[in-house]
Each structure stands twice: as structure tokens, then as C-alpha cells.
Design a protein around this nucleic acid. Structure first.
Lengths: 150, 150
DNA sequence: CACGATGGTTGCAACATGCTACCAAAATAG
DNA sequence: CTATTTTGGTAGCATGTTGCAACCATCGTG
């Protein structure tokens, strides 16, 4: 169980997100789910994580509505873990992490896995933070309003 | 010290990113840095984290090139922690986490902090994953190429 | 029905985290 | 200049989390 820390009461969406997926394994499980892993054993082999930890993480991800447990697609009696819509909406998070890693942890020319447009095989455009009227936003161009009623 | 796990050898950029910032506190420290926190005490009060843990996290973030320690901007003898260019390039990651949190962890109308365009005070446009030719990409529209020479 | 594969659970050792107390240097008040 | 407070840490210890290995029940297959 990932114990909920001190931010139960937090009004910061980042803190709530981190609370839901912000540990080492959860994010990688979600990444594997995007890459097509569905079965317990697939995640376990792909990640090399201890089985009890994987059990716990899958449970919290299901409890958090990121994954759901469904009957196996091949008709067997086993179950599979698939992304919910909420889980799929993590796509920009995973892409952002991937692009940051590509830019910062690989020497030029060093090999690494790569996320591409399935139809054309091209790399994706780097994510851009845009204002509501489409201007590119750097960190300094933004500020946090502490409270809003939306 | 955040012990490096089993992915030293990984070719996946997501894993390397998670290894650098993928624990509960590091991401929140980076978020606070984007929001203007610079001093040890600022981070500590804002996050409520134990001081020894904060010390360790700041050290690993500095060692990882995400933050750097500079002389205090007010001329005092203390030091401050500021984002490096590598750290600033985490902006889309933080924004993605924030938007995911906003969409999924708050009831409609519930109050929460909000990141806005400083000039106009408007909310930011939701991040979009785009192909190199500008088509919007859903998870199913993409695939992972295991290796590339870039 | 026997046997391997799958998907776990359990117990324990090692490690990371959080809390409290402590401390030295820097700033500040008098 | 001295006393006190603030800042930015360390140190020690209790607790929580993780990783590993062993075990086990169910499923699928021959």
C-alpha cells in the first residue's frame, strides 16, 4: 500500500497526481500498459519487479482508477489489467517524461527506445505548453493562482 | 540517497527520467521551484518534509543536474537552489501532472490552485501530443521502436 | 490426471523515511 | 559587542516500505 502522505488536504493538483502515480514502479507500469502490456506476468518480466510489489502496485492503480481488471482477452480464466480513460489521459505525462529523458540522459547517437507515430514511423513533436490563445509558455510566463472556483 | 534501481542499463528514457525525479518529494520540490521557492526553508515549510529528507533530495537533484546551488540572491551568506536549464525543461512534465490532477481529482467547482498565463491570467491550453506533421496523437496512434540511432 | 505456467501470498532482512533532538554559522536586536 | 533568533543543516532511533526467496492454489495442456 502506498500510504497517503500529508497532502490529503492539498489543493495542489500536482500533489494529488504524485500521490496517485508518483512512485518508481507505478509510472513504469503505466508506461508498459501504454506499450501494450496487459498481464501480470508481462509487467513482471518487463519490469523485473518483485511479485509482491507488483501485486500491491496493481492494486493501488486499480483502486485509484488508473487501471481496471478485466477478463482476459484470450478467453482464459485469467484477468488482465488495462488502462481506464483516466489512465489513458496520463499519456501526456508519459510522453513528457520520455521526451525529457531523451533530451537529457542520452548522448547524441546513443541508442534508446523511441515513441513514434504508428502510421508514418516518425518521432513525435516535442510537447509545448501553450496559453489559451496559443502563445508558447515558458515557466516564467506563468504563475500559480492559489485558489479558483474554476 | 535515492538508490539507483535496476534500470542503470535501461534504454528507456521514461525509466531514466523516473530514476532522476520519480519519487514523492523530488517532483514536488521541482514544482515548488517552478513556483518560485529557492531557499531550504521555503521548500521545507511549503512541503512539510523532514529536514534530513529535504537535504538528501536537494543533494540528489543537484547531483542530477536538475537544481544548482547558487549564492543567495539577497546578498546574504546563505545559498539558494534554482532550476538549471535541464530542470526548467521539466516544465511540460509538471504541467502534464497538474492538468491530469485537475481533471481527475477535483469535483466540478472544487477549489484548487491553478497555473495561469501571467500576462492575461487565463488558464493554459491542455497539452496535446502531436505527430511531426501536427496530427493529434492518441496512445493507440503511437508505438515504441525499441532501438534507434536517432 | 499429471505437470508446467500463471498469478499470486507470506515471512524476513535490508533499506528508506520521518520524527525529534541537537548544533554551528549567519543575521538581528539591544 | 553581546545575546538571541533564524537558517540550514546532522545524528540517532523508531517505523514503514521494498526486495528476495519460498511457498501455494488455480489454470491450461498433453
Amino acid at each position: 500500500m502506498v500510504t497517503r502522505k500529508r497532502f490529503d488536504d492539498s489543493e495542489c493538483p500536482v500533489a494529488r497526481s504524485v500521490d496517485a502515480i508518483g512512485d518508481w514502479w507505478s509510472l513504469l507500469i503505466v508506461r508498459d500498459a501504454f506499450d501494450g502490456s496487459r498481464r501480470f506476468g508481462e509487467f513482471q518480466r518487463s519490469l523485473g519487479v518483485a511479485k509482491n510489489i507488483l501485486t500491491a502496485r496493481l492494486r493501488t492503480l486499480v483502486a485509484g482508477g488508473v487501471l481496471e481488471s478485466v477478463p482476459a482477452s484470450d478467453g482464459s480464466a485469467y484477468r488482465e489489467y488495462v488502462l481506464t480513460p483516466k489512465g489513458k489521459s496520463l499519456f501526456p505525462v508519459i510522453v513528457a517524461l520520455r521526451q525529457w529523458g531523451e533530451q537529457n540522459f542520452f548522448a547524441p547517437g546513443e541508442e534508446h527506445s523511441q515513441l513514434v507515430d504508428r502510421r508514418r514511423g516518425h518521432r513525435l513533436r516535442p510537447l509545448e505548453v501553450l496559453s489559451s490563445d496559443g502563445r508558447r509558455m515558458n515557466p516564467d510566463d506563468t504563475t500559480v493562482h492559489k485558489i479558483s472556483t474554476r
